[in-house]
Structure formats: C-alpha cells, structure tokens
Design a protein around this nucleic acid. Structure first.
Lengths: 216, 216
DNA sequence: CGGCTTGTGGACTGGACGGTCCGCAATCCC
DNA sequence: GGGATTGCGGACCGTCCAGTCCACAAGCCG
C-alpha cells in the first residue's frame, strides 16, 4: 500500500557507515550524511530515527560484516598463520576507499565509548563476539596442530583482537610500512609455534621478516 | 609591563587536556573548555589562539608526559617485565579520574588522524618517539639479559606500543577485567624469555595475577 | 599618583547544527 | 480512475557553535 521507498535501506546504511567511518560521528553533520546517503532529511528521519540511532545501526552492521569477514578469512585458508597474516595485511592496506580510516569499531570506541553508554554497550558486545569468533578459529588451528594446544584459545584471541585494534590505530597515523610490518610480524610471532612434540629449540627467535610480500 | 595573567598557563592547559580527553575533540565546546579551564573566552583566545591550536598544544604536552612516564617506569624498576607489567596495569586501571578514557593519543588518532593532517603529523611524531623510548628500554633489558638478544628491539617496541594502544582501546568498552588481564599477559608473554643459555622450560605459563594491586 | 599597557568578563555575531513540518508526488487497492 | 496511504523535497525552527569585540579592571613605570 502507498508509495514504496525509492532507495535500498541496506545500501544507504552502508553509505552512512562510510561517512561516519571517514569523518567520525560528531564531525558528520546531517547534511554530510544525507548527501552521502543520497536521501532527504524526511526520508532520513522516517527510516532511521535520528543521527544517534543511525550510528548504532551502522555499528551493528559493521559488526556483522566483520564477523563474516573473519569466518571467511579463516574458513578455506591455507592455515591459521597464513590466514591471519592475510587478514592483518588487509587491515593495514585497507580495502580500497577505507584505507587510512582505521577500524570503524575502534574509531567509535575511542570517540564514543566514554560518553555514550548505548554505543559502549554495543561495542562491548561486538568486541566479545569477535573475540569468540577468533577463539573458535584458534581452537580449530589447535586441533589441526598449527598452534600449541597448551595455550588458552580465549586469551590468545583477546590478544589478537587488541593487537589488531592497535595495529589499525597506529596505521591511521603511520604511512611508514616498516612500522606496521613490525607490528604484524610481532603478532604472528605471538601466536607461537606448533606444539614441540620432539625436543627442539623452544623459541627459534622466529624470522621477523621473511614471509611477507605475497598478499595483495 | 601591564597586568599579569591571573592563571597558570600550564595548569590551565592540563585542564583543557582533561576536557578533550574525557569528551573528545569535536564534542568539547568552547563553553566546556573555558568552564573546565576556569578562564573566559578572551583569555582563551589571547593565550591559546583557537580550539584547534589548543588541541595541538595538549597533544604536545601529553606526548612529553608520556615519554617521562615511560622513562620513569623503567628507570629504577625491578626489571623490564615487572616494569612493563606495572605500566600495563596502570594503563588498564587508569590514574584516578582518567580511568576509562583510554589513551589520549589513541583517542585523538582515532578521531582526528584521518581528517586533520596537522594532528596526524604530530601524532606520528609522538608515536615514533614513544616507540624509540620503548626500544631503548628493550635494548637495556637485552644488555641485562632479561630479553633475548636476538630480537629486534625496534620491532618489539613497535609491537608493544600497538599492543598498549589496543589494550587501552578495548579497556574503554570492557569493564571485564578478565579480558584485559588476558591481553596484558599476552603482551608480557610476547616479550619472550631471557636467552636460552641453559635448557629450561621455555614458557612457564607465568602467573597471570599476583603482582597486581600496588598501583595508586 | 597618573598615564600606559595588558588581561579579563561578558555581550554579541553570523552561521551551522539536529530536528520538524508541510505540500506535493507516487503508488496501491478497489 | 479515484480515494487512501505512504514517500519525499525543501523550507523552516530554536539552539548552540566558534570566534570577535569592547568597556573596564589590574598591574607596571615614571
């Protein structure tokens, strides 16, 4: 009944996310948002409530997409370390236009967590879900013998999550790849080696460089 | 000659830093700032130029203070790992009123780096200085035999810096200490063990709690 | 003390902000 | 086609924004 919407809600939400992502929450005015979304203020308020509700919706969407990306990155990968390396590389280089914008969750956490309890709660939920997803991948890798079974998968997942956030945060200000490469390699090294079944040098001081250069 | 200022510039700058730290840059209005600083708009503009210049000044100050804190934390500490543990603990718990506000540098990087090239440049400089300071402490620890001499001190310092940023970012949304403890312990573990001169159990699974509780 | 210089409080300004409203357009159902 | 219903463009609103200005206060110097 009545006139149907002239825009795709999901696509427009993504445009809003891009705007918030690029400029931050406070710095994105309604004019900026409506212009980026390609809709008028009426449609905006009718469909999304207000600026704050829209932000929460973009946060929800970004969390879902991120979880899918994690699952996809590790699903059919050539192994945990390689998949993680590729995932970190993507975090550094960014996917096209999102380069240099950091992680949207991290941006929102830094800008909003302390002053917006709703956003903080949603961010906490999302971070928890991400940590759980990573922990699941760690468990799978442990079952495959790619990671020491003695390590707590939840603790390692939490370290990786924080490390990724730190990496992407530093990447926002550092065009210098050497810095980001060091951080990435350090995280990979922190994952550790396969279980020492036979007596071997425990930490062979890992080659910090070496396996770089094959990610797009 | 003429009338002297009725306020201490450094003290007032610190108040401004606290305000930006607690609310973020965009969300801090001039009324907020003047109120927190205890001065009028005239004094504000005469002394600090404008809001943006003030923010850059607070960034400069925070960087100096942070470098001093790093030097102090490791200077007379009981060893690298213990000093690092204490430093991370302080990052989590915060120093009194700054609890839950995250790292000011991280906050500014997340909010401003992508849209404010001046802030981005200053943040890059500061991050670089911090990484260098940490690298110097790593070198000292290596000389003392507390860290494997084979590791690149610069790379490890960069990893620690990113890890701290991630830790403090996650801490902004997570009241759950277990998550933060896992990240802290993971970072400590990533520092690695002293060089394996004699054969020893490589990773003694360290006591995750234990040395907490003595920081103000 | 008296002129001069500087600091300061608070009123003021133009513009941008988030949000509302109304008249019209487009579609559905009968 | 015609009435009912919904979507939409853009004007509009009160508020708050960063920044300016000016009259007055407070100190220095002769």
């Amino acid at each position: 009944m009545g006139r149907p919407r002239a825009f795709d809600e999901a696509a427009v939400l993504q445009k809003a996310l891009d705007c918030f992502w690029a400029r931050g929450y406070e710095a994105s005015s309604l004019d900026d948002l409506c212009c980026a979304m390609g809709i008028s203020r009426s449609s905006f308020y009718q469909c999304f409530g207000n600026k704050h509700d829209l932000m929460l919706a973009t946060l929800e969407r970004y969390g879902d997409v991120t979880l899918d990306r994690i699952a996809g990155a590790f699903a059919d990968g050539p192994g945990f370390r390689q998949s993680l390396a590729a995932f970190l590389e993507l975090s550094i280089a960014g996917a096209g236009d999102t380069a240099g914008h950091g992680c949207y969750l991290g941006n929102c956490a830094a800008e909003l967590a302390a002053i917006d309890s709703q956003a903080a709660r949603q961010l906490e939920r999302t971070f928890t879900r991400i940590a759980e997803a990573l922990a699941e991948q760690v468990r799978i890798a442990q079952a495959r013998g790619e990671i020491d079974r003695a390590r707590d998968p939840v603790a390692l997942a939490r370290l990786l999550m924080a490390g990724m956030q730190g990496l992407r945060l530093v990447a926002k200000t550092h065009p210098d790849r050497a810095v980001l490469d060091d951080i990435r390699d350090g995280l990979l090294q922190a994952v550790g080696q396969p279980p020492p079944r036979r007596s071997r040098t425990p930490v062979p001081a890992g080659d910090p460089q070496g396996e770089t250069g094959s990610w797009s």
